[in-house]
Design a protein around this nucleic acid. Structure first.
Lengths: 349, 349
DNA sequence: CTGAAAGCGCTAACAG
DNA sequence: CTGTTAGCGCTTTCAG
């Protein structure tokens, strides 16, 4: 019998990972002491510490995060959801955030909503259930402001890249008006006076700001756009809008696009219609995605500092977690103009 | 004072989420019963169930995953690490896996190692500490086989896309030899006989398989390649290797690239040297990333079914979690050739 | 069909 | 400096 029992205990020990109790027993100290040498929360006699350390090594002991989370009330995990991870700009955002968060000891639960509101909701809920310490979210198009606002009541949330209407919490944005102004400046300096705008979803806050930056900047030069259209931030939409422009009487000498993907659609149409870019029409993008420099002609565009935005969001989130009652912070990061081959002087005449 | 205290209690109540005990009290039943109506583990009188449900609603009660994980011994969370999330093919892999996993109720802890072995190790460790139920990993270049093998002793691991030497566990791969063969077939059928290979890291298992597929297929036609070079899977490396080819005496009429990004580098050099593609040299890629169809000329390439691979990996992982002792599974998924503008008949002469 | 109580592995008072 | 002990929120026997 006794043999049987010890055998069972042994097997059990082999299967289940060692617990803090096992370590305590082996080191001949109390669990409290083990806990303290592990967390360094209170001083421990060097000799004891050594014994504990040795026991930890020998047993290959690893503290259970789950148990720790339960007692500490923090999971050291944060959630992040973005609209479309296949779009490299969101990947960069993720990388930036992840890097910073890893430095603070946080792991990230990730979800790509693919611009599906239901999916976004499910991720938010799933992460909340798992009691993340906070969340970074780049909201999907048309996301319900109330959902995010409610979430913010429960846990720290920082919005990045896009805002929901009425959002009163922390946020990191790119200086879209400013950036679009850069593109306009560039074009105007090249002598363009008829500049069209091809944009994405108007209910995406960034699109609104880009549009504003566009018209306001133009106005400052005493100019007005012969064409402003909106669609979705996709290549197909870029194609559609470009075709619409060509069959209109707007006759722009340049087209500003709300993002690079849109611009690629525009370029594709120009290519297919054999319209020379930039000879006949100049085109600008926005975001500076990796492939902006690869298309022909290489795209003149404005960078969106996504990595930096991810890092900033992480920083804001950590602040919020550490100091829940501070007033909300707002960070805006500026991008810069990258001049490539898709823009040149306005065709004379 | 009394006022002060009650106020504080109220605030506290507002802060701390309700526990199962709160629900039990409110419904006038025991916590055990509440637990059972929630999990449906044993039958409960309809009336009781109703009372509990009502209490849950009124309190807005949500079970704590952390506590549940502790007692159930499963976190319903899996880890996933890939070498470079900015590369869209890995994004697709993630999406595919995530989708399937979400259906089973799993959330995913994510990490992009950016091909940094130390970073990869840290992610693996971080996820293990958080006691994920399993992991899906697309290993970084040069990753230590022992690390993964050891991890597999502790928790279910499935490798995807790339293998470590000697890996004996579950894995999902793409049929690289086959796919590269497709590209070779295509080129040979177009009359090409001098086909060069531009490849990435040789220690990446997929690169090896692509290379093999390339040379073997060529051999089957009685052909031999005038040029085979290796570098990294980046545009820059593609540029370098292309330049090397041009200044050699290999004089290929076609260049097979180990992936699309490499091919874009090659295209860029051809463009800069004003060498006509496909007129003078045909170029093929591999992966069919989103932008393969956008560059000029549009890239002929072989699809790598990354989404499907992600889904398959998820399926394998779930199987392994549910049945830890089954023999290891291996899944290989085939891609297909997509003919676009970067290939044409070999220049006569 | 339901309640009581013993943990899950760890932390954090509270005593020495 | 160290040990004891009461939880954290939930699941799950074991008794009714």
């Amino acid at each position: 019998m006794a043999h049987n029992v010890s055998e069972r205990l042994q097997r059990k020990a082999a299967q289940k990972p060692p617990t803090i109790t096992d370590v305590a027993k082996r080191a001949g100290v109390s669990v409290g002491t083990v806990s303290h040498v592990l967390s360094g929360a209170r001083s421990v006699a060097p000799a004891t510490r050594r014994r504990v350390d040795r026991a930890v090594k020998e047993l290959g002991y690893r503290p259970s995060f789950t148990a720790r989370s339960l007692t500490r009330g923090r999971t050291m995990t944060v959630g992040m959801v973005v609209p479309d991870i296949v779009n490299p700009i969101f990947s960069q955002l993720l990388e930036g955030a992840e890097d910073a968060l890893a430095d603070w000891g946080y792991a990230v639960l990730f979800g790509s909503s693919e611009n599906d509101l239901e999916k976004e909701r499910r991720y938010l809920e799933s992460f909340r259930e798992r009691q993340v310490d906070g969340m970074i979210v780049d909201v999907a198009t048309g996301s319900d402001p109330a959902v995010l606002a409610a979430l913010r009541e429960e846990i720290p949330v920082v919005l990045v890249d896009r805002l929901t209407p009425g959002w009163a919490g922390d946020a990191v944005l790119s200086a879209d008006e400013f950036g679009m102004g850069l593109a306009v400046d560039h074009l105007v300096q090249l002598g363009h006076a008829r500049i069209a705008l091809v944009n994405g979803e108007p209910d995406v806050s960034g699109a609104q700001r880009r549009r504003q930056g566009f018209t306001q900047r133009l106005a400052r030069y005493g100019l007005e756009s012969p064409w402003v259209s909106e669609g979705t931030f996709t290549m197909d939409s870029g194609r559609d809008q470009a075709r619409a422009i060509l069959s209109s009487d707007a006759e722009p000498t340049a087209i500003c696009c709300g993002n690079d993907v849109l611009a690629m659609g525009v370029l594709a149409v120009m290519h297919e219609r054999e319209i020379d870019v930039p000879g006949t029409i100049s085109v600008t993008g926005y975001d500076d995605i990796e492939f902006a420099g690869v298309v022909t002609p290489a795209l003149t565009t404005v960078t969106q500092p996504m990595r930096a935005m991810g890092t900033a969001a992480a920083r804001l989130l950590k602040q919020r977690i550490d100091e829940p009652d501070e007033p909300a912070n707002n960070v805006t990061l500026k991008g810069e103009l990258i001049v490539r081959g898709s823009t040149s002087s306005a065709a004379s005449g």
